[in-house]
Simulated scan of single mutants.
Amino acid sequence: MENLLETLKSLLSDPQMPVSPEWTDSMLETYPYMPLPAMLELERNSTAMSAQRKNMLMQHVAVTSPSPLPLHRIVTPDTPLKPDFYPEQKPIETPDTNQAIDKFISNYCPSQHNEEEILERLIFNPTPDYSQLLAEEEERSVPEKETTTGSDQDSRI
């Protein structure tokens, strides 16, 4: 096992060193969730290997790699991954304090013209006292006394 790790260190330090399929297979047996040995063999020996071996190593990288970028780099090394997949987002405008206050006042406060009209109505047409309104309404709702021609008992019925 120590020999496998020493070989891995030497492969990482020397990019021209070829990767043997035996070393890759023993690394995949020992470390089944490590995509690095398969990636190294695919990068360095892709022209000399069979299509079946290449597919097997690519499947291993696809399954064990946490990101699709290494597989994309191996399969199509010359084409970049499309960074413009999502459209560019426009920055959100954040108003400063004065703009926020002005917007609040324009949306939720009455305009200056309405304010003057309200003041004029309150000054020149004051609202009557609520108790006076109730008293006047009560006077209007009281039924008038009926004049009866019969006896007192008949008028009560």
Rank of each mutant, 00 (worst) to 15 (best):
E2N: 15
L4R: 05
T7Y: 02
L8R: 03
S10D: 04
S10A: 10
L11K: 01
D14I: 00
D14T: 01
D14A: 03
P15G: 02
M17A: 13
M17L: 12
V19E: 00
E22K: 14
E22R: 13
W23F: 04
D25I: 08
M27T: 02
M27F: 02
L28P: 11
L28F: 08
E29W: 09
Y33H: 15
P35Q: 07
M39V: 04
L40I: 00
L40G: 00
E41D: 05
L42P: 00
L42S: 00
L42V: 00
L42D: 00
E43H: 07
S46I: 03
S46H: 06
A48E: 10
A48T: 09
A48F: 04
A51I: 06
R53F: 02
K54L: 04
N55M: 12
M56P: 06
L57G: 01
L57R: 00
L57S: 00
Q59L: 09
H60V: 00
H60K: 01
A62N: 04
A62F: 00
V63E: 10
P66Y: 05
S67D: 07
S67V: 03
S67L: 05
S67W: 05
P68V: 01
P68T: 02
L69P: 06
P70K: 02
P70N: 03
L71K: 07
L71T: 03
R73A: 15
T76I: 09
P77C: 03
D78K: 13
P80I: 03
P80E: 10
L81S: 06
D84H: 05
Y86W: 12
P91Y: 12
T94Y: 13
P95Y: 05
D96I: 04
T97I: 14
T97W: 15
T97E: 12
N98A: 14
N98G: 13
Q99H: 07
I101Y: 11
D102F: 13
F104G: 08
F104S: 10
I105D: 10
S106C: 08
P110E: 01
S111P: 03
Q112V: 11
E117R: 11
I118V: 13
L119Y: 13
L119S: 12
R121I: 07
L122S: 08
I123W: 07
F124P: 00
F124Q: 08
P126K: 09
P126T: 02
P128Q: 10
D129N: 10
Y130R: 15
Y130M: 15
S131R: 14
S131N: 14
L133C: 06
L133K: 08
A135Q: 11
E136W: 09
E136L: 12
E136Y: 08
E137S: 03
E137W: 06
E139Q: 06
S141A: 08
E144R: 05
E144T: 06
E146N: 05
E146Y: 04
T147Y: 13
T148K: 14
G150Y: 06
S151D: 05
D152R: 08
Q153E: 11
Q153G: 10
Q153C: 09
I157E: 09
